[in-house]
Amino acid sequence: MNKIAILMVFIIFSCALISTILTLRPFGEPKSTEMDDYIIKNAQNETGSNNAVTSVVFDYRGFDTLGEATVLFTAVAGVLLVLRRNAHE
């Protein structure tokens, strides 16, 4: 019973994914790109960086990077908390 339910979930989810991508727009032609065009045009003037991806990561979307750094810090703290005490026994 349990196995049949898991199989149903798997089949339904896979069919949903495949039917979604078959109706998606063609590869390589993004539709609404105003924000990305603005960033590509103005990244050099506004942040002074040649690499637009770095200017997005650290300048335009710095809050995302702050959250990411927090997640990394929390993960390292968790691993040290779980495993460190036994390392010294």
């Binding site: 942040t47 002074g48 960086s49 650290f58 810090f73 993960a75 691993v79 040290l80």
Partner: peptide, 26 residues
């Protein structure tokens, strides 16, 4: 060039080096 971006790269690089090494070492 780049303003604070190279400094932020250096600090984040330090953080990632120390974090990943600590995980694998422990």
């Amino acid at each position: 060039t780049g303003g604070v971006l190279p400094l932020m790269n250096i600090s984040v690089g330090l953080k990632v080096i120390a974090g990943l090494s600590a995980i694998v070492l422990v």
